[in-house]
Each structure stands twice: as C-alpha cells, then as structure tokens.
C-alpha cells in the first residue's frame, strides 16, 4: 500500500465505483432531456425511492424461510426495484409532466422541482426522518492485487452498471425504439407523422431512465448502506452535474460525466485535505462549465431561429 501508484489506483477504483452510480442516474437525466428538453429534477428522488424499495425487497426476500441463494435475492431485488421505479417514473410523467407539455418551460421545471420535493417529504412523512441501515445481501470479501484492495461488492457494482450501460447504449443505437427516441429528440413535430406514438416513446424513456436510477439506488445501498429521505438531493445533483459535464442529452456523455464526477468526489478530499469542500468544488465546476461551455464535453450547440 505504500507505493504511490497503488494508492492512486486504489482511489481510482473507489472513483469508478461511485462514478458508476452517478453515471446510472445521469443517464436518466440525459435521456429525458434529450427527448423533452426538460430537466427532470425529480430524478434524483426516484433514485432515492429506488434505494428504499431495494432495501425492503432485500429484507423481504431475506426474511422468507426459503434460504434463497444470494444471486437470486440480488436479482430479485433488482428486478423488483427496477419495475417499481419504472412505474413511478411513468406515473410522474403521466400525471405531472404530460399536462404541461405545451406549457412554458418554466412551468415544467418548477413542476419537476415540486415533484422531487413531494417525493422527499412524502417519504419523510411516511417512514420518518431516521436514517435506515441496508442489510448486507452479499457477504463482503476483501481481495488484494498488486497492493490494491477491492471487494466483491465493488466488482459487482462495476460489472452490473457496465452491463446496464451497454444494454442501454445498444437499445438507443441499434433498435427501432431507440431510433424513434433519437428522432423525437431531433424533431418532435415530424416524428408523429411517421406513425410513431410520441407519448409511448416518452413513457418508455421515463420507464427506462427511472428503472436505471432504481438499479443505481440498489447498487448505492450495497456500497453505502445508510439511507435517508433527502439522499436523492445530493446524489441527484452530482449525477445531474455529471450529465451536464458530459453534454446533457448525450448518452455516452452522461457515462463519461458520471466517472468524471466520481473522480472529483474521491480526489477532492485528497488534494484539498478536506472533504467538506467537495460540494463547492462540484458546483463551482458546474457554474464554470455553464458559463464557458454550456453544451458540455460532448454536446452540440443550438441556435435560435430569427
């Protein structure tokens, strides 16, 4: 562990783990923005709900007198969480965002803020403000390789998020549905004329984005097993910054941004010798980026028609 390269690698691994979670959430922000040019501020709270749902699913499956295999409990919780968060995402779109699709942008953004706060405060009111401990599904095992320590949980998080990201990227780039999504984000007026149901594609976008955020919630719970109703604010914001850094509306940009933010979070305390400044660092980064390159690293600029 004394070798500086090994220490750096160790931090990098932690950054990758955290970055994976940010990337998963950033994907949802980016997908919705791509298709509706709207920032779904409630997305971070869908992630929070996902983390709680995963906790309850795990508790339930562990409590069953069946002695289920670990892999089954993990996949069962994952499926349960992703399904319910997808349903939550679709309902939010149906009830709160769809009536506002023709309304001014301001209304949509404020509604999204309102929905996010509603989810937070509703969770707070139903289960109380005390932080909850997530049960360990997987017995943690430590490995060491060349002075770098890692756990099976870390590997699992990296692998599962990588699988989800590749699946999503394939969906968006290779399938007809993905093509419809990209078409809508390009021009929402033409697409319905081609026989594509815009409503259905938008619902699907919310479903997929929210399901992935739910998965992010479960993985986050594995790595940082304490949950509270306001956790979605901070994590959601970091993920959002990730989406902006990568160029919001851009799927691969969101993943890139996620890892950038994971790195920022892990390395800021190391470099500044204080962990409390990391929020200021991330938000200052956001401000600077928005002032000088509002389209992010991989985004395209837009021009107003006169």
């Amino acid at each position: 562990m004394s070798c500086p390269v090994a220490i750096a690698l160790q931090y990098l691994l932690n950054a990758l783990q955290l970055g994976s979670v940010y990337a998963l959430i950033a994907l949802g922000y980016s997908m919705v923005y791509g298709i509706l040019t709207m920032i779904n501020f409630a997305h971070g709270d869908i992630f929070m709900v996902g983390a709680y749902l995963a906790m309850w699913a795990t508790l339930f499956l562990l409590g069953l007198p069946l002695n289920l295999p670990i892999i089954f409990i993990f996949l069962g919780s994952l499926l349960f969480t992703m399904t319910l968060t997808a349903a939550l995402g679709v309902s939010i779109e149906r009830l709160a965002y769809r009536p506002l699709r023709q309304a001014p942008k301001v209304s949509a953004v404020i509604t999204a803020l309102g929905v996010g706060l509603f989810l937070e405060n509703f969770t707070l009111a139903t289960i109380g403000p005390e932080p909850r401990q997530v049960p360990a599904i997987i017995p943690v095992q430590q490995y060491s390789w060349g002075g770098v320590a890692f756990t099976n949980v870390q590997l699992l998080i990296l692998v599962v998020s990588l699988i989800l990201m590749v699946l999503l990227d394939t969906l968006v780039r290779r399938t007809l549905t993905g093509m419809a999504m990209r078409a809508i984000s390009y021009n929402r007026v033409i697409v319905p004329l081609m026989g594509v149901s815009v409503d259905r594609i938008i619902s699907l976008t919310f479903a997929i984005g929210s399901a992935i955020a739910g998965a992010g919630g479960l993985l986050y719970g594995l790595a940082y097993p304490v949950l509270d109703p306001y956790m979605g604010i901070r994590i959601g914001w970091w993920a959002f910054i990730a989406a902006v850094v990568g160029g919001i509306g851009n799927i691969r940009g969101a993943v890139l941004g996620g890892y950038v933010l994971g790195t920022v979070e892990i390395f800021t305390p190391v470099l500044l010798a204080s962990s409390t400044y990391r929020d200021s660092v991330a938000f200052s980064m956001l401000l600077i980026l928005l002032i000088f390159k509002p389209t992010g690293l991989l985004g395209r600029p837009t021009v107003e028609k006169v």
Binding site: F240, S280, L286, L290, P294
Partner: peptide, 25 residues
C-alpha cells in the same frame, strides 16, 4: 447573459448550494 431557461435555473440552484456549502465550512 449567456444562459437562459433551465440552464439558468441550474446556475441559481448551484449558487444556493454553494452558499450553503460555504457556510457549513
């Protein structure tokens, strides 16, 4: 001057969070 709409919303929210974060520090 350069950003409008939801991007400006982000700037102002970020400002809110930076103020809070600085005060906490």
């Amino acid at each position: 001057f350069r950003t409008r709409g939801d991007y400006l919303a982000i700037v102002t929210l970020a400002f809110n969070m930076i103020v809070k974060s600085i005060l906490e520090n």
